[in-house]
């Protein structure tokens, strides 16, 4: 099996690696780069657990090959918080009990992070539809929705304060 040399950035760190063309991005992130916060739940693009952000777009890393990310910039769950401080979104997941076993959580955080960056004022129904790309079997989605909604509300409040 032939290999390719790829160069990419994950959470601001540079990686230069030799990979087989068939290596999934999810396996590459976990096994080659050791970033085990990205989880693999179904490997057919339904559960959403493996979601990462590639060049500013949330993607399922089980449906991409590592070689496709040559030259790209990737963010994983490990890249959200800085110096051990949770981001407001992460903090709200904690406060609203938006996670139980935590296995689906990194994927949901990445999707929510990407979605809120592009849609600062979503309706509850829109948030539910965004979440429909993720399976969580612990929470019944209630705490997750509350956490994301709280983040939206806080962001709005922040925008108002900054604007005034």
């Amino acid at each position: 099996m032939g290999t390719h040399s790829i160069k990419l950035t994950i959470n601001g760190k540079h990686y230069v690696e030799e990979v087989e063309s068939r290596i999934l991005l999810s396996d590459f992130i976990r096994e080659n780069c050791g970033l085990t916060g990205t989880h693999v739940g179904c490997e057919h693009g339904v559960c959403g657990a493996c979601t990462v952000i590639v060049n500013g777009t949330a993607v399922r890393s089980c449906l991409m090959f590592a070689v496709q990310t040559d030259g790209e910039e990737i963010q994983t769950v490990e890249g959200l918080s800085q110096d051990g401080e949770l981001t407001p979104l992460q903090q709200n997941f904690k406060e609203c009990h938006g996670l139980q076993c935590g296995f689906c959580t990194p994927g949901i955080l990445m999707s929510a992070q990407d979605y809120l960056a592009k849609n600062p004022e979503p309706s509850t129904q829109e948030l539910k539809e965004m979440l429909s790309g993720h399976l969580c079997r612990c929470t019944g989605y209630d705490g997750i929705l509350k956490a994301i909604q709280k983040t939206v509300d806080e962001n709005k409040q922040l925008a108002l304060t900054e604007g005034s």
Binding site: L35, G37, E78, L80, S81, G84, K94, L99
Partner: peptide
């Protein structure tokens, strides 16, 4: 449990 799970530091 939450902080480690939210930061991708769970140990599954």
């Amino acid at each position: 449990e939450d902080a480690r799970l939210l930061m991708g530091q769970g140990k599954y």
